[in-house]
């Protein structure tokens, strides 16, 4: 039975799943799955993350193809934004009348 430890078994690649729950919403990260290929990843993602909810669209991408910041990046990488006030909504004082926010 020790063969299980000596030979690492192949559980396929890890993929990250992004799903869009309704139109006009962005795709957001739902979790990850194992899959042998892209089509298989889509199917597995559907079965796992869309089995109850109403999902409009799914994206899958191999986890290893994602480049992410590290915790050490946090300060230099994200700090420039707070002083660029024009990038934040609070910079603009004009608020739209309520009815304009409603979807057609």
């Amino acid at each position: 039975m020790s063969t299980h430890l000596q030979q690492p078994d192949d559980q396929w690649d890890l993929w990250e799943v992004f799903l869009q729950e309704s139109q006009n919403e962005p795709h957001s990260h739902a979790g990850s799955i194992r899959a042998a290929d892209a089509e298989n990843a889509l199917q597995n993602a559907r079965d796992l993350f869309a089995r109850r909810g109403n999902v409009k669209s799914l994206w899958v991408v191999r986890s290893r193809d994602i480049t992410a910041t590290t915790p050490d990046d946090t300060v230099p990488f994200f700090e420039p934004t707070p002083d660029k006030v024009y990038r934040h909504p609070q910079f603009y004082s004009y608020t739209l009348p309520d009815e304009l926010w409603k979807k057609p």
Binding site: Q11, W12, I33, R34, A35, N40, Q43, N44, D47, L48, R51
Partner: peptide, 11 residues
Amino acid sequence: PILEEDIALSN
């Protein structure tokens, strides 16, 4: 054969 397929076949 793999957990994902347990879910798929059950579906």
